[in-house]
Design a protein around this nucleic acid. Structure first.
Lengths: 296, 296
DNA sequence: TAAAAATACTCCATAGGTATTTTAT
DNA sequence: ATAAAATACCTATGGAGTATTTTTA
């Protein structure tokens, strides 16, 4: 059976064209080297050297096999190095899911950091709602999710990384745009635009219950999956909404954001990953998330 | 030190994801297999498997290294196969020199045969006179020469493969074109076109001495290196020439070839190669030359 | 005859085997 | 309780060393 040893020895002899010197270079005696080369030739089924006792020369086949052998050892080095990089989480591929609002908030910061620190890990991004992310995480279709807690699944690990105040989004033309802040009760007769409850039950219920504490049940005139859509609808005067403050980053014309007077309700974003997945690139990614987003 | 054994074992375990079954497949016991994998991991500096006693799983780095390992073993197979082909003279490269007249005669037959029997050997052809071929052979710049004997060099082996009659080449307009054959004495007063003596001393001297036996010294009015040129000059009425019969293949308009009445002088072509060069593709080529050109 | 590869043999390192333990399900 | 990997220990193959012979320039 051919071993790498044979190739290493062969390369040495081919380079020295002298068994004695090659043996010296390999820190071994000459006879076993002759043996191993002979054995290699037997395994290969062809001569590597023309041997005339006094001089050693590569055969034509030997020359070809020399080039191939060098390539092989070099590739092994490469393979080891690549393996080590993957092991350190410096090379690989990550598939990431995120809710649309994360795109305005945490994602840009984290991705910029990750890309600069670990450039050899390819990132694949998929925008999708929380519940879909949970399925994809379980199926291994994504490795990391940026989503809205809570998550019940015991197989998934979840850390909240952002907790931001909610603000009221009003059409530019609305009379309340002059107020410095708004109490919920002032919105009792407004039409509300919200996301469908299954998308983020906790946030949804929070808003509803706050309104009820303010003495009214909100009149939901429209639902929309995407935050962009909600903001657009507000701009269009369809109604008002309560959105995470980071949406201000969108700079949508025709919309004014106002803080709430109430003890501020919060929108949360969390990272989630499979508890038993110790893939180094995931670990590396989570480290960077931690660095960037130490949650107070 | 990593050996191919390690890779073979690793691939087996990675494919079975079960040390026991992998060991069985490798016709060995399970403990030494565990040992070898452990040793491999130590050499690599990273884990290949997540081992939880009850289940074996590839790590991310392990997956990458698995693909690389498979590639490596496959490439070794390839290298061995290529080496064997080269050894059998079925793959490689040959550089061949030939005198211009060989192009009308032996070369086409031999090359056609060789290309069909040994398609994977690349041929490089260089037209050049005999003396230059000898230098290039000695320098290793060509491997095979088709040239005009004799060759004195002891380091070169030479076999004559073609011995063909010489014929007289006359301009179409010449009065002797009606004769069925020609005696040299009939050409005593003609102007002769010949190649320079150094190009093929034997053939040159042969022609001169034949003329002298016929009672005259030929009047050489023009010399030319290439047979084509000689024939063109004859066609142009500059003079007559004595050329190998295979030149008739050229079908040059304006020239008529006539056999000689004299005991036919002969033009020879030989193959030459370095005696101590046992490169299989050369051997293979020479075999085919022998097959095709068994000299009577 | 001198230099270098091949042979002959000897030895020991280590690959591989056997028996057993550990551990997770 | 059981299946599977790890650990401990032993065995023996074969890789490597030493001494010697063979070969040819």
């Amino acid at each position: 059976m051919i071993e790498l040893r044979h190739l290493r020895y062969f390369i040495a002899v081919a380079e020295e064209l002298h068994f004695g010197r090659a043996a010296e270079r390999l820190h071994m005696a000459q006879p076993p080297l002759s043996q191993q080369i002979k054995q290699l030739e037997a395994e290969l089924g062809f001569q590597l050297f023309h041997r005339t006792k006094r001089s050693v020369q590569l055969t034509e086949a030997g020359q070809v096999f020399l080039a191939e052998s060098r390539k092989l050892l070099h590739q092994l080095e490469q393979a080891i190095e690549t393996g080590r990089q993957v092991n350190r989480g410096e090379k690989g591929q990550l598939v990431i899911g995120f809710v649309s609002s994360a795109a305005y908030n945490v994602l840009p910061v984290i991705l910029r950091r990750f890309r600069s620190q670990v450039p050899a890990v390819r990132l694949e991004l998929h925008e999708m709602p929380t519940n879909e992310q949970l399925d994809w995480l379980r199926d291994g279709k994504i490795d990391i999710g940026f989503l809205r807690p809570p998550v019940e699944d015991k197989a998934l690990q979840v850390t909240t990384i952002v907790r931001e105040p909610m603000v009221v989004a009003l059409p530019e033309s609305h009379p309340l745009t002059d107020a410095s802040q708004i109490t919920l009760s002032q919105l009792a007769n407004e039409g509300f635009i919200l996301f469908p409850r299954p998308l983020s039950p906790r946030a949804y219920d929070q808003i509803i219950s706050l309104c009820q504490q303010a003495g009214f049940s909100p009149n939901v005139v429209q639902e929309a999956m995407q935050m962009q859509t909600i903001v657009s609808l507000v701009a269009g005067g369809i109604g008002v909404s309560i959105v995470p403050v980071s949406l201000e980053n969108m700079q949508r014309a025709g919309v004014v954001y106002k803080p709430l007077a109430e003890p501020t309700p919060c929108a949360e974003i969390a990272v989630a990953w499979r508890q038993n997945d110790h893939s180094p690139s995931i670990q590396r990614f989570l480290e960077i998330v931690n660095q960037a987003m130490v949650l107070r």
